[in-house]
Nucleic acid binder design. Structure first.
Length: 465
RNA sequence: UCCCUAGUAGCUCAGUUGGUUAGAGCAUCUGACUGUUAAUCAGAGGGUCGUAGGUUCAAGUCCUACCUGGGGAGCCA
């Protein structure tokens, strides 16, 4: 008999499955026992919904049934029948049960009751078996898939940028060192410094903090590309929004100006939300009911509201005239703080906001300079609850201006000579942005802590699993 | 890294101005129950109160340090 997934059974027209025999396999969520009969709630990960298995005590050995506890893995053969109870349309009457793996009840940490997210983080090896994390990781899969689908359908190429790099060109943050040198016996130069010419690559290397610069090389040949890969930051950040290892999506498009870039970002976000609402509604609904009662409303609102677009300069004026008691003072030239961004998005506009044209001093060297010589063609997309979810810009495509910005920012030429050469040979206007995958997961799941939207979070002092 | 806050049973928590033998719900185990769905009902077991010092006749409770979790900030995605 061929095994069938619970999702397939539950989504089928009951008339087409009732009366048929099936084999299902999964993990026991609960077993409720009466005198003559037991009910098993079985989940196989294919859906948040459980299949109710009905067990007639006459058919099975009592000691065998005692081993079927919460968490155990079983396979069940039996007949699908219409359920007399209203909670589920169908149920499976078992004829044969195979016990694959026991889960001793006095040791298995997951109970029928709800657990705190903090406790579940401590058992990250088991938490995917809960309703909450099952839902989150299914959504995570669908989100990743929809990102690839969006770009693929638009003719973008998935461009693989390197994980191991030589330097922190972007100044994005502290980097994780990569080396094969013997840390207990480091080769030294005559000046007493570590001799990296002895290292695997013959140079000092680290894990990437961004694939953007390499992504631009792809865009200036293939037209439109995107990257989607792991990114590493060794910052000692202990917040609900930072991970040391996270996934980032970075599209990069030739012949796109800053307006095209904004249009793409907005279309992208709306596409992903729509895809999830159409493909993971049950999981989103569960999270909405359990954790964030406004989640579905918020997602639908973002879906049919045009994003507000305004310049940094206009935003500063709004903040100055807001009469809000901000902790950090407002003046032209400051980098906006969380409290400022939150005011604009959640209080003033009440919808996603795209801020543009920031002072060049607070943005990266590769962003295209405006004619005023003071601001750059940068754009940040801010959303409710999460804050900055996308950062992007039109890139500086003028060789001389880029060289000047590189020198002003003291970026070592040995690290970016190849990047600069693209402005010497067939330079073209181009733009791109970066989206933090887990930040977006926070937004679409309503979760409050980034450690709860990735299977195995890496944060300072935390790498148990 | 800074500020705030918490750490008591497997989990979630209560524990008064310091004062006998530290409690509850859930979970677990035993039993009951003709279809349950966070099943229900009855009973039982389970704790050197985060760690190390200190104050005191007496510390779960007060003080100090450290560890760990959570929230906020900075940095950012």
């Amino acid at each position: 008999m061929q095994r069938i997934k619970i999702k397939e059974l539950l989504k089928a027209d009951p008339n087409n499955v009732i009366g048929n025999d099936y084999l299902v396999k999964g993990w026991v969520r609960t077993r409720r026992e009466s005198k003559n009969i037991s009910f098993i709630a079985l989940n196989d990960g294919s859906t948040i919904n459980h299949l109710q298995i009905v067990v007639d005590h006459d058919k099975f050995n009592e000691d065998f049934l005692k081993k079927i506890t919460t968490g155990s893995a079983i396979g069940v053969k039996g007949q699908i029948v219409a359920s007399p109870a209203p909670k589920q349309p169908i149920e499976l009457h078992s004829n044969e049960i195979e016990l694959y793996g026991e889960a001793p009840a006095d040791e298995y940490p997951l109970q029928k009751k709800g657990h705190s997210l903090e406790f579940l983080r401590e058992i990250a090896h088991l938490r995917p078996r809960t309703n909450t994390f099952g839902a989150i990781f299914r959504i995570r899969h669908h989100l990743a898939y929809s990102i690839h689908k969006f770009f693929n359908d638009k003719g973008f190429y998935y461009f693989h940028t390197p994980i191991i790099t030589t330097s922190d060109c972007e100044g994005a943050g502290e980097m994780f060192r990569v080396t094969t040198l013997d840390l207990y016996n480091l080769p030294l130069t005559d000046h007493g410094k570590i001799d990296f010419s002895e290292d695997f690559f013959g140079k000092e290397t680290a894990l990437t903090v961004s694939g953007q610069l390499e992504g631009e090389l792809g865009a200036l040949a293939l037209g439109e590309i995107y990257t989607f890969g792991p990114t590493f930051r060794a910052e000692n950040s202990n917040t609900t929004r930072h991970l040391a290892e996270f996934w980032m999506i970075e599209p990069e498009m030739a012949f796109y100006d800053i307006i095209d870039n904004m249009n793409l970002a907005e279309e992208f976000i709306k596409y992903l939300i729509k895809y999830l609402l159409e493909n993971c509604y049950e999981d989103l609904e569960f999270l909405n009911n359990m954790y964030d009662k406004e989640l579905l409303d918020r997602l639908n609102h973002v879906l049919d509201t045009p994003f507000e677009r305004l310049t940094y300069t206009d935003a500063i004026e709004i903040l100055k005239n807001s009469n809000q008691n901000f902790e950090f003072p407002i003046y032209w030239g400051v980098d906006l703080q969380s409290e400022h961004e939150r005011y604009l998005v959640e209080k003033y506009f009440k919808k996603p906001v795209i801020l543009t044209d920031y002072p060049k001093e607070i943005k990266a060297f590769y962003m295209k300079l405006n004619d005023d010589d003071k601001t750059v063609k940068a754009m940040d997309v801010l959303v409710p609850r999460v804050g900055e979810i996308i950062g992007g810009s039109q890139r500086e495509d003028n060789y001389d201006k880029l060289l000047k910005r590189i020198q002003e920012n003291h970026v070592p030429m040995k690290d970016v000579w190849w990047y600069l050469e693209t402005r010497k040979f067939g330079s073209a206007p181009h733009s791109g942005f970066g989206l933090g995958f887990e930040r977006f997961m926070l937004f679409v799941t309503g979760m409050g802590n980034i450690r709860d939207v990735i299977p195995f979070p890496r944060t300072p002092k935390n790498i148990e699993f």
